[in-house]
């Protein structure tokens, strides 16, 4: 059923129940995202897609559109909230982009540029975290994990459907874990998919590293905004 809603004052027709995120992007309104993967069940973990729906803050990837909805995306208060959320991720992890394999193709970094982050308003924490080298093909750089849970939900053992990645601990003690035994069974395509699925540089393929020259990396060719608006989710 087609319904009408308003995004930033603009009248929009959409199919009822479509995620607000998809509707906004299809209508030329960019909303940053770090955990949402189009076509997959929504995770709603990062909150970087926060907008106002009927004056209330909600994560755009979690909201199915209904008739008469009034949405504010580029409203100052919620725009700054999105920026603050991104800044908190940079303060919480240790994000040394110049020494990161993912730089230039990292969703977090690209979204940082889109929200106009120059510095984090939060204190940089420099929490020491152990790297995990146990698996043959994958290195886990825990400093950079934003706990989006993309890997946890969308990367599974092809035979048994078991999860390969999981999160242990809670709150500040949360830690991304890898089941090395299952990870060693992953095909190289599956490893590449997991590396690309991770929005940051936590899941790194061993022996690959800095394989694209500066200037020719994913988001240097086309920005995250341009990709999202063009429906290019690769």
């Amino acid at each position: 059923m087609m319904i009408q809603l308003k995004i930033d004052g603009k009248n929009i027709n959409a199919r009822a129940g479509t995620p607000l995120m998809d509707v906004a992007l299809e209508n030329g309104v960019y909303i940053p995202a770090l955990c949402y993967v189009k076509g997959q069940p929504c995770l709603g973990t990062c909150r970087v897609c926060s907008v106002k729906v009927g004056g209330v803050v909600a994560a755009a990837c979690t909201v199915p559109v209904v008739h008469g909805m009034e949405v504010e995306v580029n409203e100052p208060e919620v725009t700054d909230m999105r920026k603050a959320l991104v800044e908190s991720l940079f303060a919480e992890g240790t994000h040394n982009c110049p020494s990161c394999e993912k730089s230039g193709r990292c969703d977090l970094q690209a979204v940082g540029y889109e929200v106009g982050m120059m510095v984090s308003r939060f204190e940089y924490r420099f929490t020491p975290r152990q790297r995990d080298y146990a698996s043959e093909k994958i290195l886990l750089e825990r400093d950079r994990c934003i706990f989006c849970q993309r890997c946890v939900d969308f990367v599974r053992d092809e035979e048994t459907g078991q999860k390969i990645f999981s999160i242990s601990g809670r709150g500040a003690n949360s830690r991304i874990e890898i089941n090395a035994e299952l990870a060693n069974k992953m095909t190289s395509e599956q490893v590449t998919r997991a590396v690309n699925l991770c929005p940051v540089g936590t899941i790194v393929e061993k022996g690959v590293g800095f394989n694209e020259p500066i200037g020719k990396r994913k988001f240097e060719i086309k920005s995250v905004r341009e990709r999202a608006l063009a429906g290019d989710h690769k």
Binding site: F90, T94, N96, P98, V119, Y124, F126, P128
Partner: peptide, 19 residues
């Protein structure tokens, strides 16, 4: 004006903050 990663958040020298 803070110019560059080191001035902005610590950068490479701040790798020692983990130890």
């Amino acid at each position: 004006i803070s110019v560059g990663a080191c001035a902005v958040w610590g950068g490479v020298p701040s790798m020692r903050n983990l130890l």
